[in-house]
Amino acid sequence: MKAIINPVKYNLFLVKPYWKQYLLLVGFALGFPLLMKDLGVAPFYSAFLIFMTVSYTFSIEEKNNGMRFIGMVPFKRSQLVIGRYLMNLMLFLIFWLIVMLIEPILFDLLNVTAKNHENFWQSGLLALVYYLILASFSLPGFYKYGAIKGRWMIYIPLVLIVLLVFIAQFFNWDSAKLEALLNPMVLLPAGVLLLILSLLVSIRIMDQKEF
């Protein structure tokens, strides 16, 4: 158990000095939908914001000879990779829960009439899937190409989503068909599966890496 939890803690130690940035992101995630008066956008917005912090641990390690540190500690590389995946997932879930629980209350308190109020939790689940897809593609990219060059990996899922929209329009899919496709009960397990696949790819990349 320590083999999994301690690498998570190590990653938290890496981002610990940036706790103010995380608070700021929470503020943004809560504030922006208020300004737009759109509750439905909140989960997606928060998912994207926290996704942007996925590269932090990588860039911190790169700037600080972190690979030497990794090379010295008595842990398997796979354990370190699992730790990083879990830490990012954990931060996302905390972030996501905060937004999901607090945002509706804020809308009520400030008396903002919101669009897309009824589908809020469904949007939330879709945002979760959205995050899983982004993370699944970008994490192996960061492992393979580093914090800066690895970023282009996120274009793959973005292009796929755009392609999907294009196809939907081209074939003139009706909203019922789209809704069936965007069913979180199907997408969520698929997203989790994707993340596990991504994890396996990252472990393989890390195992072959020389530093």
């Binding site: 130690f13 890496l14 000095p17 700037k63 600080n64 010295m72 008595p74």
Partner: peptide
């Protein structure tokens, strides 16, 4: 090594805490 391998923002105390995680 010839130069340290810690995260520069860690304090000496935190370095000890992180080492304790791994060893």
């Amino acid at each position: 090594f010839d130069s340290h391998y810690f995260f520069e923002e860690w304090t000496v105390k935190e370095v000890g805490q992180v080492m304790a995680l791994f060893f």
